[in-house]
C-alpha cells in the first residue's frame, strides 16, 4: 500500500495513462483522451475513489481457494502406462538366432555363421549382454515400484481429501449451531 499526494492510502501508485495504454490509431486525438482520463482519475481520487487494494483481495481469495484444495498428483497417463508395459516386455535382451533363406546351402551357412559367432564373440559379448540385462531388470523393477507407490499415494490423497471435505462440512454445521446459540434469547436458556 502506498500513500498518494493527498496522503490517503492507495492500492496502486499512480502511473500516467501514457504508460498504461496505447492507441495506435492516428485518427484518434490521443492527447485529448489521455487528458480526460487523467482528469477523471484525479477528480475521483480526490473524492476517495480507487482506494481498495484489488490485487491484495484477489491474491487472498486465490490463495484461500487453492490452499483448500491442493492439486492431485497426475495418475499414470495412457502414454506412461503403455511405456511401462513395453518396458516390462522388453527389458530382457535376447540373442537373435541367425537364419538364412538360401535354398539348399542355407543350413550350411547358418551352421558356419553360428560356429564363427561361437568362436569369435560369444564368450566376450555374453558377459556384457548379461550386465545389460541385469541393469535393465533393475531399472524396470524400480519403475514398477515407483508406479505402484505413485498409485498408492494418489489413493491415499483422495481418501485424505474426502476426510478433509467431511470435516469442513462438520465445522460449517458446528459454526451454524454456535451462531444460532449466540443469537438465541438468553432468557430461553436454562
Amino acid at each position: 500500500m502506498q500513500a498518494d499526494a493527498n496522503g490517503s492510502s492507495n492500492a496502486q501508485a499512480f502511473q500516467d495513462p501514457g504508460e498504461i495504454f496505447e492507441i495506435r490509431d492516428p485518427q484518434v486525438d490521443v492527447e485529448a483522451l489521455m487528458r480526460t482520463v487523467r482528469e477523471n482519475v484525479a477528480r475521483r481520487r480526490a473524492e476517495g475513489a480507487y482506494n481498495e487494494d484489488l490485487d491484495a483481495i484477489a491474491d487472498e481469495v486465490f490463495k484461500d481457494v487453492l490452499t483448500a484444495q491442493p492439486l492431485l498428483p497426475l495418475p499414470l497417463g495412457d502414454g506412461q502406462a503403455s511405456t511401462l508395459i513395453e518396458l516390462n516386455a522388453r527389458w530382457a535382451v535376447r540373442e537373435v538366432p541367425f537364419r538364412s533363406n538360401a535354398p539348399l546351402v542355407g543350413p550350411l551357412i547358418v551352421a558356419v555363421r553360428n560356429f564363427w559367432n561361437w568362436m569369435s564373440t560369444k564368450w566376450y559379448t555374453r558377459a556384457i549382454l548379461q550386465q545389460q540385462v541385469t541393469f535393465n531388470a533393475l531399472v524396470v523393477q524400480a519403475f514398477n515400484e515407483n508406479a505402484d507407490e505413485h498409485q498408492a499415494m494418489l489413493e491415499e490423497t483422495r481418501q485424505l481429501q474426502a476426510i478433509c471435505q467431511q470435516q469442513l462440512e462438520e465445522i460449517a454445521l458446528l459454526k451454524e449451531a454456535v451462531q444460532r446459540l449466540q443469537k438465541a434469547d438468553p432468557s430461553d436458556r436454562d
Binding site: Q12, F14, I20, F21, I23, R24, T36, R44
Partner: peptide, 24 residues
C-alpha cells in the same frame, strides 16, 4: 492499429478509459 491496448493494469486509469470508450 485498431482498438486500444494496455501494457499495465492500473485500475483507476483503465476504469476511466473503459468509461470513455463506452460513453464518448
Amino acid at each position: 492499429e485498431a482498438g486500444v491496448q494496455f501494457h499495465a493494469v492500473q485500475f483507476g486509469v483503465l476504469a476511466e478509459l473503459v468509461g470513455v470508450l463506452v460513453d464518448d
